[in-house]
Design a protein around this nucleic acid. Sequence first.
DNA 1: TGACATTATGTCATATCTGACATATAGTAG
DNA 2: CTACTATATGTCAGATATGACATAATGTCA
Lengths: 103, 103
Amino acid sequence: MKKSKREKLKAAGWAVGSAQEFLGLSKADAALIEMKLSLSRSLRERRQRRGVSQVELAKRLHSSQSRVAKMEACDPSVSMDLLVSSLLVLGAKPTDLSRTIRT
Amino acid sequence: MKKSKREKLKAAGWAVGSAQEFLGLSKADAALIEMKLSLSRSLRERRQRRGVSQVELAKRLHSSQSRVAKMEACDPSVSMDLLVSSLLVLGAKPTDLSRTIRT
DNA sequence: TGACATTATGTCATATCTGACATATAGTAG
DNA sequence: CTACTATATGTCAGATATGACATAATGTCA
């Protein structure tokens, strides 16, 4: 998918599920975004449940607070690789990721 | 994880599972690579099962044959996003991806 | 053998992602 | 109110991923 499309999507403030037709997203594009949304929600949940701040998590990831915030906001600039490896660092097991994706 | 580490890994010709200690990969890094390996295997399986050539798949993805080959070889230059969206284009459902990752 | 389809590997310009930084916006306690 | 902590948002230089291309292997069939 073109990056520009996702930017547009966010700019328009549409809920992802409902934007598919409007923006001409393919099923695959939409499904990918849904998956990333699930992962980002899961990330925030995990982090908060453990009482870890974005700053602390950023340190563990050798990243920055702003990037963590973007991850949790599912910013278009965030890759699935980053989401997944962050979850793994927070102790998520493949089983957990599997469940997150399916949901 | 540093990209250089994965390059090194491939260069050394190690099976990923056994390379973790040797190259100082973190558990998270290793798990991420394992997941990508699973996805790439799944991609090749799906493609072949459907009798689709790499060239044909490349067209559907608006990509190139060489990139498809790299995906299936799990080349370090291939992102999880690309693997996943390719699988989705090949008709994989979130459930399928979920199963692939878990395994 | 040759001709052809398929897959693999290497390179490169361009596009996208990333960490870092600045700064803004909550929220909370004193 | 101020001071402090946490989170959000914008930007940018440098790092990484991508498609495209060339070319090399590998098959396959006649």
